[in-house]
């Protein structure tokens, strides 16, 4: 009876810090969106042409993040590589969300043999390690960034399907869903007005999280050279090119830091969505 609730260990103390971290994350995301939508607003340097004489310069006022082995401005290359890096992650997430979400919805709501068949398909997708699955798809379809995006999306279908299925099943057995049926709600009404609205929050949180994971996966695939070839400037590819010049560590660390900060911000926002009241 006593409803005095005790907050789980660890919640307290971060409450004050939460808004700041979330605001910073939004700021990072806004900057990334700006870089991909209008890169020319953020840098005047050309990402594709450099002065060979000015190669491998360390960061300076003129070249904020230094120059690469062809004398190209690294900051400009990162900014101009944003669109491709971010959009492909977005495409991957949308594929995973749409296909996985529908599979999970059908599986969880219809049950029976539909659930069994889809359940086995999900198990199969989970059984092939994500990164390997993406690698197989890319090598079959050809080394292009768009194929990398599709492959990453297909590899994430299972995660979405599994979450959507469990959320739908959890909500379908909720008392308020039965109450709606008693109030005369037919199955379609119950699904659209009660089950989905209650399931969507955690699915959205997963989509945001998966967006970050996709950036990492795509960067990994680009790093291995499975995306568009140079002079493309995908973040992962920039790191791969930079690693051949160990005496110029900024060529690795600058694009790596951009990836880390972006993904960190996205993960923070996912957590915020999941816990926001």
């Amino acid at each position: 009876m006593s409803a005095t609730t005790f907050s789980p260990a660890g919640r307290r103390g971060r409450v004050g810090a939460q808004p700041l971290a979330v605001l910073l994350s939004f700021a990072v995301l806004a900057l990334v969106v700006g870089w991909s939508a209008a890169p020319w607003l953020f840098t005047g340097n050309d990402p594709f042409f450099g002065v060979t004489a000015r190669k491998l310069l360390p960061p300076s006022a003129e070249h904020w993040l230094g120059t690469d082995h062809l004398g190209r401005d690294l900051y400009a290359r990162i900014v101009h590589g944003t669109w491709s890096s971010v959009t492909s992650a977005l495409i991957a997430t949308v594929i995973g969300l749409a296909v996985g979400g529908l599979l999970g919805l059908a599986s969880g709501f219809l049950g029976g043999w539909v659930d069994t068949v889809i359940g086995r398909l999900i198990d199969m997708l989970l059984a092939i390690p994500n990164f390997l699955l993406a690698v197989v798809i890319v090598s079959a379809f050809g080394f292009q960034t768009i194929n990398v995006a599709i492959a990453t999306g297909v590899a994430s279908v299972a995660v979405f399907a599994r979450l959507m299925r469990s959320e739908v099943m959890k909500t379908s057995t909720a008392v308020f869903v039965e109450a709606s049926a008693l109030a005369g709600g037919r199955p379609a009404h119950v699904l659209l007005r009660h089950v989905l609205p209650n399931a969507y929050r955690s699915v959205v949180a997963l989509a945001v999280l998966q967006f970050g994971t996709s950036i990492l996966t795509i960067a990994g695939l680009a790093f291995l050279g499975y995306g568009d070839p140079p002079p493309a400037a995908d973040w992962g590819l920039l790191v791969a090119n930079g690693k051949d010049y160990p005496s110029s560590p900024w060529l690795v660390f600058a694009p790596a830091a951009v990836i880390v900060v972006t993904v960190l911000a996205i993960n923070r926002l996912s957590r915020w969505i999941r816990h926001a009241a």
Binding site: V175, A179, S180, L182, N198
Partner: peptide
């Protein structure tokens, strides 16, 4: 029907 637990019988959304 009126359910036992009003904390689960109303859709929170």
């Amino acid at each position: 029907l009126v359910y036992q637990n009003p904390f689960t019988s109303l859709d929170p959304t």
